[in-house]
Design a protein around this nucleic acid. Structure first.
Lengths: 332, 332
DNA sequence: TCTAATTTGTGCGTATGTATG
DNA sequence: GCATACATACGCACAAATTAG
């Protein structure tokens, strides 16, 4: 990694890019107090810049007290303590309430020295491509939630490799990038296993699974569990006027379906938690108090945001699985 | 074929001819992403135009996201796809689930020919100022939710006057701008009046009101209603280990407090809708099925988004109050 | 001690976009 | 449409300090 790097596509003024890249080098400990910076002439020559542009950057750093000059010798690092302003590109799939916890905890953990811009691709690859292309070069970090979109890997690879983080979904083509994601296969399997004692009083598992929006791993883990423990099962894409048979357990990723199932159960006078079981995805405060509480399989989005921020601040590059658990309540 | 060409006999305004000829050049691949446009001075000189005319054209192209400027260098092609007629700057206060409906209905009603970028000021005037300044000039419309921040008016006034829309809050200093907002005073007053028959079986109204986050009008309307109909009342900033007396009605803008109140009522074995009343703010699907349904005062955020989009598409400049209503359910 | 090469420091001119009146 | 001040970027010339030979 070089001390100075500039990108002509970047809309940031060149002298500011130089300032930023030197600050980054110091923050990442590639430059330490007393180290000599590359000379003005060298930098100008290497990047085909005017001497004055480089000079402007060095003067700026001098003004901020980060470096000092010795006439006839060179520029040297004076201080390692300053706050580096980060600009973060955060690309979500869609606007929904589960992003709220993630965003807030991420923002909080990044502290005041980060500006975070949020974008949504809405499961549209063209929008995805456009957003990535148009913002490439303008940010210090790129955090991307690719979800189940096809063709994302090629687009992501056009971004600066060291500044990209993958959120929420693992993907074979993106395994070189640091990431924090849910393991959907494992999560649903483990959750069902954790609730197996309670599942025994039911005789059929039904997954409400609209395939475009939900990650395929969910289905895979569900099938794996049903196979292993010989449960009768069904996968339906939607819950519309679907009568409920006593002894069924519904696994419901979407909250609108959850409301439908509860209302249907009530209209059939079926006791939730006795004759019908419900497992919902993603915990929200209200689920604690619906009926006798709704059992949820829940990834801790708050933790996801915090861990992501730490990974960025400490420059660690890991592939982490975000913890998920079964929160047992009265509905199972 | 030149990049820019204008025809004085043409009735089309000169700046629009420039816009059109550059768009054509891009469409015909004579200009590609990253290419430099002829400088403002050159074009002005070549066609004997005022610098301002050329500037107007280039600014128009910038607003549409087709080109961008590098200070001291020139204008460059940013995007080769410019089916997008509108680029919209949407500045929210904070990320929360009620924005979801608003955003989705707005996006839907704007149709495919709009790109919407979302930002959050998090109730911080410095962040607000920075976001507005940095993006001033890059968008065709600016939609802003100023909330209760002081000093926003001066910042907003730096934006192009005809392209600004105010969301969710009215403000005396911003009354010249088109807006769609809740009338918090009227909404809570009318809602309570609508539910007055049911309120009669209770003897005290309690508003849980953390003053920093909630609009002051809410408190004003509450007090007005209590005064007019001689209700005993109390305003508390938080609900922490607050014992419930039978006969109390809680008006709860925040959902975490809602959960606390429900749990407290249950632990005191008080029947919600009989001995304790609850009115919650903002409807969500789950509130239909909590207890026997939670009565909510709810602005239709979905309608707000749709109306906003229509206002923009039809270039109407009105100050509208968004409709709000009391959704009566079992909790009152 | 002299010289050449390297480096910082200073000054001036020109071109371009940005902002304001 | 015109004028003016300002920020960014590039290029050239020259002075002053340091270092290596």
């Amino acid at each position: 990694m070089k001390i100075v790097s500039i990108d002509t596509r970047n809309s940031l003024p060149k002298y500011k890019q130089i300032v930023l890249s030197i600050e980054t080098s110091i923050a990442e400990k590639r430059l330490k107090r007393g180290d000599k910076l590359p000379s003005v002439n060298k930098v100008a020559l290497e990047f085909s810049l005017s001497r004055d542009t480089v000079l402007l950057a060095y003067e700026e750093l001098k003004k901020r007290g980060i470096i000092y000059a010795r006439l006839g010798k060179g520029y040297y690092v004076k201080s390692e303590e300053f706050t580096l302003q980060q600009r973060i590109f955060l690309l979500f799939d869609e606007f929904n309430s589960f992003k709220e916890d993630l965003y807030n905890s991420f923002k909080e953990a990044m502290g005041s020295n980060a500006q975070i811009d949020i974008f949504f691709h809405s499961f549209n690859i063209e929008v995805f491509k456009k957003l990535v292309n148009e913002n490439n070069g303008d940010y210090s970090k790129y955090i991307i939630m690719p979800t189940t979109l096809n063709g994302v890997a090629a687009v992501i690879k056009t971004l600066p490799k060291n500044d990209v983080y993958i959120l929420d979904q693992a993907n074979a083509e993106l395994e070189d990038y640091p990431s924090i994601h849910q393991n959907f296969v494992k999560d649903i399997y483990n959750a069902l296993e954790a609730g197996r004692d309670k599942l025994k009083k039911y005789n059929k598992l039904i997954l409400i699974f609209p395939p475009e929006k939900q990650p395929p791993g969910m289905q895979e883990g569900f099938l794996k569990f049903c196979g292993k423990y010989s449960f009768d099962f069904e996968i339906i894409p939607d819950f519309e006027n679907h009568g409920i048979q006593p002894g069924e357990v519904y696994i419901i990723p979407n909250d609108r379906h959850l409301v439908n199932v509860i209302e249907q159960a009530r209209s059939q006078k079926l006791k939730i938690g006795k004759q019908v079981g419900i497992i919902s995805y993603n915990d929200t405060p209200l689920k604690k108090v619906v009926e006798n509480g709704i059992t949820t399989i829940s990834t801790d989005f708050k933790a996801m945001g915090t861990i992501l921020a730490h990974m960025i601040l400490q420059q660690s590059r890991q592939q982490l699985e975000n913890k998920s658990r079964l929160i047992e309540r009265g509905s199972l």
